[in-house]
C-alpha cells in the first residue's frame, strides 16, 4: 500500500467547508506564511492563480486565506467572518486574480506579506484533501508540505554545509523526512527546506543561527497544532 492514509483522513478532517482544497488547504498555506514572516501581517497582497483565480470567492478561499493569516485553524468557525475580522485587526488586504500561469500548479496562491520592517513572499499550492506544498519562499524553491516540523535555512553556499546541518539536526535526535536545496547562482545564497519527524530544541536552533555562514533560520512546527 503506497499511501497508508490515517483513518482520520477517511472520517475527517474536521474542517470548515466547502472544499478541502479551496478552504482547508488555503487556511494551512496562510498558517505557514505567518510562521515564515514571524508575525501576523499588517498588509497582504494575495494573488490567486489559474483555477483559484475565478473560483476563490465562490469557494470562500478569500476568507480562508485571511483566516490562515490571522492564525485560525482549519476547523475554526470564525473563518466565515474573516473578511470582517481582518478589517478590525487591521489586516489590510488586496486580492488579485491571474489566469493562464502555465508554470504554476492549478491551485496556486502568492502571498506578499508585510509588517513594519518584516516582509516575505510565499507561493503555496493546494494539492487536494487539505494537503499543501509551499513551493517558494522569497524566490527560493522550497517544496515542503508543512505536515511535519519544517526548518528553512538560508545560508551561504559553502562546501559541506548540508552535511554539517544534517549532522547538527541528527544530534538533536531529529529524523529528516524530506530535504530540498535550492540556490540563486553558484557560491551565492542557498536555501535548505528540511522536514523532520519531530520538533527541534531551541538551543539547536540558536546554534544554527549563530553560525557565521548562516543568514536566517526559520522554524515551522506542526501548523495544525
Amino acid at each position: 500500500m503506497a499511501k497508508q492514509s490515517s483513518i482520520f483522513n477517511m472520517i475527517g478532517p474536521v474542517m470548515i467547508g466547502p472544499s478541502s482544497s479551496h478552504t482547508a488547504g488555503v487556511v494551512r498555506i496562510g498558517r505557514v506564511a505567518i510562521r515564515l514572516l514571524g508575525v501576523i501581517p499588517e498588509q497582504a497582497v494575495i494573488t490567486f492563480y489559474n483555477s483559484f483565480a475565478r473560483t476563490y470567492e465562490g469557494h470562500g478561499s478569500d476568507r480562508a486565506i485571511l483566516a490562515g493569516l490571522m492564525d485560525f485553524k482549519t476547523d475554526d468557525k470564525r473563518i466565515k467572518e474573516s473578511l470582517q475580522l481582518a478589517k478590525e485587526l487591521p489586516l489590510h488586504y488586496i486580492f488579485k486574480s491571474v489566469g493562464n500561469a502555465s508554470t504554476l500548479h492549478p491551485n496556486t496562491i502568492k502571498l506578499e506579506l508585510k509588517k513594519n520592517d518584516k516582509q516575505i513572499e510565499v507561493i503555496g499550492e493546494s494539492l487536494g484533501g487539505g494537503v499543501i506544498n509551499i513551493a517558494e519562499v522569497d524566490g527560493f524553491v522550497t517544496n515542503f508540505s508543512a505536515s511535519l516540523h519544517s526548518l528553512l535555512i538560508m545560508a551561504e553556499d559553502v562546501k559541506g554545509s548540508i552535511a554539517f546541518i544534517a549532522n547538527v539536526i541528527s544530534n538533536d535526535q531529529c529524523n529528516i523526512a524530506n530535504m530540498s536545496v535550492s540556490r540563486k547562482g553558484k557560491n551565492k545564497m542557498a536555501c535548505l527546506a528540511i522536514e523532520m519527524d519531530s520538533g527541534i530544541k531551541p538551543t539547536t536552533l540558536m546554534y544554527l543561527k549563530a553560525l557565521h555562514w548562516v543568514n536566517e533560520v526559520i522554524y515551522v512546527p506542526d501548523i495544525d497544532l
Binding site: 474536521v14 470548515i16 467547508g17
Partner: peptide
C-alpha cells in the same frame, strides 16, 4: 448545506460528500 455555507463539517470521506454519513 452547512459545508456549502462555510460551516464546520467532517469530510467523510470528502467535504463534497459530508452530508451522507
Amino acid at each position: 448545506e452547512v459545508n456549502s455555507c462555510m460551516g464546520r463539517i467532517v469530510a467523510a470521506p470528502t467535504a463534497g460528500a459530508s452530508g451522507i454519513l
